[in-house]
Measured scan of single mutants.
Amino acid sequence: MATKAVCVLKGDGPVQGIINFEQKESNGPVKVWGSIKGLTEGLHGFHVHEFGDNTAGCTSAGPHFNPLSRKHGGPKDEERHVGDLGNVTADKDGVADVSIEDSVISLSGDHCIIGRTLVVHEKADDLGKGGNEESTKTGNAGSRLACGVIGIAQ
């Protein structure tokens, strides 16, 4: 089992970053940390998408990683996509320092995120509470600013 993974985020604009993942036990939580720069100040949706395909930019990554066919939600919700990591918060300089621990994603097994795409979005994720159909699919997080395929790390 891989215990570490990394993702280099890039987009068409100024947004870029490096996100690290570490899972010490196969059924334990995954620590997610790193930094994203070039964002507007505020909240930005942060999700693992189904495919590791960036051939047409971030759009070819498909929908959120959702092997259990659930509705979109927040990272602490029972009803959520596996890939729903909530929001990252950018400061006035456009930098989001990421520090998350998640017990639904994994670096092995059915919820493995390796080979899938991590995406940072234009807007805040409403965590499935926006009151419309799009909220239950995407959290109304808007366009995909930057993305990268999650790969095994040393």
Rank of each mutant, 00 (worst) to 15 (best):
T3I: 05
T3M: 06
A5R: 03
C7T: 12
C7I: 13
K10I: 14
Q16F: 13
G17C: 08
I18S: 13
I18H: 13
N20E: 15
N20A: 10
N20H: 07
E25R: 12
E25G: 12
E25Q: 13
S26E: 15
S26I: 12
N27Q: 04
N27C: 14
P29Y: 06
V30Q: 02
V30W: 05
W33N: 09
G34R: 04
G38M: 12
E41N: 13
H44T: 03
V48M: 14
H49R: 01
E50L: 05
F51M: 03
A56K: 05
G57S: 15
T59L: 13
T59K: 03
T59H: 11
P63S: 07
P63K: 04
F65V: 03
N66K: 04
P67Y: 15
R70A: 10
K71A: 12
K71W: 12
H72G: 01
G73R: 06
G74A: 06
P75Y: 07
K76G: 13
K76E: 12
E79F: 15
E79H: 07
R80L: 00
V82S: 10
G83C: 02
N87A: 05
N87W: 00
V88G: 07
T89V: 10
T89K: 13
D93F: 14
G94P: 09
G94N: 10
V95Q: 08
A96E: 08
V98C: 08
I100K: 15
D102V: 05
S103W: 14
V104G: 11
V104E: 15
S106M: 12
S106D: 15
S108Y: 12
S108V: 10
G109L: 08
G109A: 07
D110S: 11
I113H: 00
I114W: 09
I114L: 08
G115E: 01
G115S: 04
L118Q: 07
V119D: 00
V119H: 00
K123I: 07
A124Q: 07
A124L: 08
D125H: 01
D125S: 02
L127D: 07
K129H: 07
K129Q: 07
G130N: 09
G130Q: 07
G131I: 04
N132F: 14
E133H: 14
E133K: 12
E134F: 04
E134V: 06
T136E: 11
T136K: 15
T138W: 05
T138I: 04
G139R: 01
N140T: 13
A141I: 01
A141M: 03
S143W: 07
A146I: 09
A146K: 03
C147V: 00
I152K: 04
